Simulated assay, not measured.
Amino acid sequence: MPGSDSPPRADAARNRERLLHAARQALAEGDRSLQLNDVARRAGVGVGTAYRHFPTPRALLETLVQAQLDDALDQARRELAAPDPWAGLTRLLTTGIALLVSDPGFAEVLAAGTDTLPRTSQLKQELYDAVDQLLRRVRDVGALRPGVDGDDILRLMCGVSYAARLAEDTGSPAGPAGLPGPAGSPTAIGELAGRYAGWLLDALRAP
């Protein structure tokens, strides 16, 4: 019958969105395990439905962050066309670190050496390529310290975001090892990440 497939497809799409919404809530509450049984219960769907959409927690996490990967890639390509390559790198690095700090799931996927979904691998490779091209432009104008490549930049960004999130995890005015640090509020963590990003840019700039 014409249109007989529409309700199942619509139901499947709704269930998928409910699962993604539930997973986002879990991440926002600090649950990074994304166990599919728990996510299914939050979403109000059967466990079998969850596994049909996302065979593993990792597949669910990668699906969640693909929009962020798309956004990061779009920005990298915009900055590649910027008239001032160093300013473009500065914007990309600063914005990227802020996103990594606010979204630990994105940081985990970006830093991973292997991926579950082919689309994740494709987006990451395109992002690495765009960053490498931007670095070549920065290097061509003599603004970049020698020996730095795109992989270095992305790993350093992940490292800076992790260091900033340590202050959030301590939840106290004193940072790790008793060093002065913020009290763990999102605003304070963002300010700390901004300072770290500035220091990283200073280290990357050619003498």
Rank of each mutant, 00 (worst) to 15 (best):
A50C: 08
T120R: 01
G159Y: 07
A40F: 12
V109Y: 07
V141I: 14
L34C: 05
D71N: 05
G44F: 09
G142E: 06
G44H: 13
G147R: 01
L69F: 15
E108G: 09
L93P: 01
E29H: 13
L110K: 11
D152Y: 12
T95H: 12
A50K: 01
D140Q: 13
P118W: 14
V148Q: 03
L156W: 05
A87Q: 15
T116C: 12
L69Q: 12
S121H: 08
A163E: 14
Q68A: 14
D115R: 02
E29P: 01
V109F: 07
R42P: 07
L69K: 06
D31L: 02
S121E: 08
Q68M: 01
L127I: 02
F54Y: 15
Q68R: 14
A72T: 05
G88R: 06
T116M: 09
Q125L: 10
G46A: 11
L154W: 10
A111F: 12
F106A: 04
R78N: 12
L134P: 05
G150C: 01
R155C: 06
V131Q: 03
R52V: 05
R145L: 07
R155D: 12
R77T: 15
D71W: 04
G48R: 06
G46V: 00
L92C: 04
L135Q: 09
R32N: 05
D115T: 09
P57N: 02
Q125D: 14
T116L: 07
G30Y: 00
Q35C: 07
L34D: 03
P85Y: 12
E108V: 06
G105C: 01
G105Q: 00
A98F: 03
A50H: 04
A50P: 05
G96L: 00
A59V: 08
Q68H: 15
S33P: 00
K124N: 05
L36G: 08
F106Y: 15
R32Q: 13
V101W: 02
D129A: 15
A59R: 11
G48I: 00
D151E: 14
L73Q: 11
G46S: 15
Q122A: 14
P118F: 11
W86Y: 11
V65M: 06
G113W: 07
D31K: 03
L135W: 07
R91E: 12
Y128A: 04
D140H: 13
S33K: 13
T120G: 07
V109D: 01
P85Q: 04
G105I: 00
V141N: 08
F106G: 03
G44E: 10
R77V: 14
G150M: 01
S161C: 04
D38V: 12
Q133R: 15
R137V: 03
V141W: 06
D70M: 00
I153M: 05
S161F: 01
Y51G: 03
P118C: 07
E79V: 04
D38L: 09
V160S: 13
S161D: 05
T49A: 10
A59K: 06
G142F: 07
I97E: 11
G30F: 00
R139W: 08
N37V: 09
P85C: 08
L127E: 08
Y51Q: 08
D38T: 11
F54D: 02
Q75H: 09
D129T: 14
H53Q: 14
D103E: 09
H53R: 06
T95W: 05
D74R: 13
G96P: 02
